[in-house]
């Protein structure tokens, strides 16, 4: 009895697995997982949104002012002190340079997916003033329209319900102005 029951139980578990696994991303979805981006086409102070793995990918050519604003923030002021950069190891500090590639600080490449519930944050233009960084600059960064999370000019969470900084995807430079994401 027990042996029959045990065999039947193991058999049921083995048969269940394909039915669970079929819901995971299929081979075609996985195959679409890399894109190349030409950074020369992004003027300073502008941002482009691309689609990577079905999600928006932000590529921003930051101004000097934006970079300095992000650098001036002490780590202790950050809600999430982890860099959330797939190219670094987890636990690295969320300094401005750890959010980009050293020497290429002007190009911020990150997911446009709010870490709260997945909406696309809006870039704050210099025309729209948001109090993103209380007590420092009033412009720049990103604001999520769904539940009001606010990110600074390095895409780090500063205010609102989102728990983490915007994720930096795995990417590397192929040439001086070209990257491959994924």
């Amino acid at each position: 009895m027990v042996a029959t029951g045990a065999v039947a139980g193991v058999g049921a578990a083995l048969v269940a697995w394909p039915f669970i696994s079929q819901m995971n991303p299929d081979a075609a979805v996985l195959a679409l997982a890399t894109i190349e981006v030409d950074l020369a086409s992004v003027p300073e102070g502008q941002e482009i949104t691309l689609k990577w793995r079905g999600n928006p990918l932000f590529v921003r050519h930051r101004t000097k002012k934006e970079i300095e604003a992000a650098k001036s923030v002490p780590i202790a002021d950050l809600k999430d002190p982890d860099a959330r950069n797939a190219n670094l190891k987890s636990g690295d500090q969320a300094t401005d340079v750890n959010r980009v590639v050293g020497g290429k600080e002007q190009f911020l490449v990150m997911m446009g997916v709010c870490t709260h519930l997945g909406c696309v944050p809006d870039a704050n233009s210099s025309l729209k003033e948001f109090a993103v960084l209380e007590g420092s600059i009033k412009t720049g960064g990103w604001f999520c329209p769904c539940h009001g999370s606010q990110y600074d000019t390095a895409g780090r969470i500063r205010k609102g319900p989102a728990p983490e900084n915007l994720a930096v995807p795995p990417y590397k430079y192929l040439s001086d102005t070209k990257i491959v994401v994924g």
Binding site: I20, M23, N24, P25, R53, G54, N55, L117, G118
Partner: peptide, 29 residues
């Protein structure tokens, strides 16, 4: 937004949402 609620589950949240979506976002699957 609603499927992302499951990403709040500690440790396995991201796997659960990817499994629910059948991809890296809400899409055809």
């Amino acid at each position: 937004v609603i499927t992302n609620l499951f990403s709040a589950i500690p440790f396995v949240g991201d796997f659960v949402t990817t499994w629910l979506w059948g991809g890296y976002s809400v899409d055809n699957p």
